[in-house]
Design a protein around this nucleic acid. Sequence first.
DNA 1: CCTGTTCTTGATTGGTTGATCAATTAAAGA
DNA 2: TCTTTAATTGATCAACCAATCAAGAACAGG
Lengths: 188, 188
Amino acid sequence: MPKIGAEPIRKAALINATIFEVGRTGSLDVTVAQIARRAGMSPALAHHYFGSKDQIFLAAMRYILRVYGGSVAERLPGHGTRGRLNAIIHASFAPQNFQRETVSAWVNFYALALINPEAERLLRVYHRRLRSNLILALRPLTDDPARVAETLGALIDGVYLRTVLTRDDVDAAAAEKLIFDYLDEVLS
Amino acid sequence: MPKIGAEPIRKAALINATIFEVGRTGSLDVTVAQIARRAGMSPALAHHYFGSKDQIFLAAMRYILRVYGGSVAERLPGHGTRGRLNAIIHASFAPQNFQRETVSAWVNFYALALINPEAERLLRVYHRRLRSNLILALRPLTDDPARVAETLGALIDGVYLRTVLTRDDVDAAAAEKLIFDYLDEVLS
DNA sequence: CCTGTTCTTGATTGGTTGATCAATTAAAGA
DNA sequence: TCTTTAATTGATCAACCAATCAAGAACAGG
């Protein structure tokens, strides 16, 4: 079985398995053995490719952020005056982001960012990128794009968090509507 | 030493120690032994009073929510037309909420709510109470207090989360200003 | 002084976990 | 064919942990 070129395949499988297991258990309290078994290999191999459990988590977090970034990018520039804005908001409330695995990954990575400097750095990068995307989208629509972007970014995070944490029936459409209502009010 | 009436004192000490240790480590990955030692007793006693580690966490979460609720209540009704509103917002961004222990407790309890039904219930209660407080405060200020309350609540959560997660220098004043700017725009 | 209750812990246990390492298998290259 | 390199795992270890329990210590009430 040992064919050369297994590394990227194994790593991808481990990242998938990590997100799946974090989603299934709802916490970062998953063992390397669980992850490795889910990915169809021995725990020793997982350590071989990633070195430590922390590195596995960070790779999974990078992947989640990359997917989100990609989902924004592929919707840009969009159509119309608010095309860019709509694209970003729509990406943020895409069904993908409400899947159990994604939700759990985000919330737990937030917690991870509190103790792991690299996780914190990744979160910062994500925030910066979202912020500059929003400012670019808002420039033709308001006098103070920076301020509106700051508010809008926080609002997106807050609405997302409340939707996933305190709703049985996740209503992405309602969440989006709340954002657009805000925009209708603040843009004019 | 075994004086009668130790239970509430021991429990309080354990709750304090729990919040301290969760804050220190930045995660829920603290042992009962750590908590008990910090509270100046044996791990066995902690189990004796709370039954399980989960119950200790939930008691700590109840305490955090109660403190926040109290900090809102003691500022109400406030002065002037926006008195109630100012009070709630001011309580949400009080220095206490930016202490390492409090921040870590909140973020980790968010994650806990994903897997522990009782934690989720507690979070729901908090959200409901904040919501009805906001609606009451907004009734004389807008035609649609429910919608503004929903937005404002999410905005408070989002701004708080971003402030504590992606800032080295926590600037509570800037966070508050962002909230008030939103209100100035949407009210009137 | 005696008895029941509360308080308290040391010792223990059954189970788990991240990580290491030697050893095996198979492909690639010369 | 022979050698080097990548892939892969079983076995294992040292550490840690939540929970239990029996037993001791001290107080209150009678």
